[in-house]
Amino acid sequence: MASADEQWVDDTAGPLYENYSRIGGRARARHNLSLDTQVCAVGTVDRAALQVEHAQILELLANRWLSVAEIAAHLRTTMNVIRVHLSDLLEERLVAIGAPSSRRSRPTKEDLQKVINHLRAM
């Protein structure tokens, strides 16, 4: 899935999950797409009208939330490339993202206790 765009995306100085690039003179929106950021497909679109990579991503996310890392792994490409596609899809309002594990959305003690309970019950 590597494309000529990839070279430009790598040409950034910011943190990994913030992508700035200029493609065709248009600046890409910045989105927080960390490794574990949750993504889901929303809205409806004729997938046949989309570029192949976008259609593949939407099919993967049709009825579930997946992390950026999982999307890249399942589609056998890099997270860098996936972030570019997700930025496009976000602008098209075809995907929604949740907050990643970050200062603004940390797991609570209740969340951690649920993890412990789940692991104990396995």
Binding site: L35, D36, T37, Q38, V39, C40, W65, S67, A96, I97, G98, A99, P100, S101, S105, P107, D111, L112, V115
Partner: peptide, 8 residues
């Protein structure tokens, strides 16, 4: 929106 993720 979306599940809370816990990263280890």
């Amino acid at each position: 929106m979306g599940p809370q993720s816990i990263k280890v």
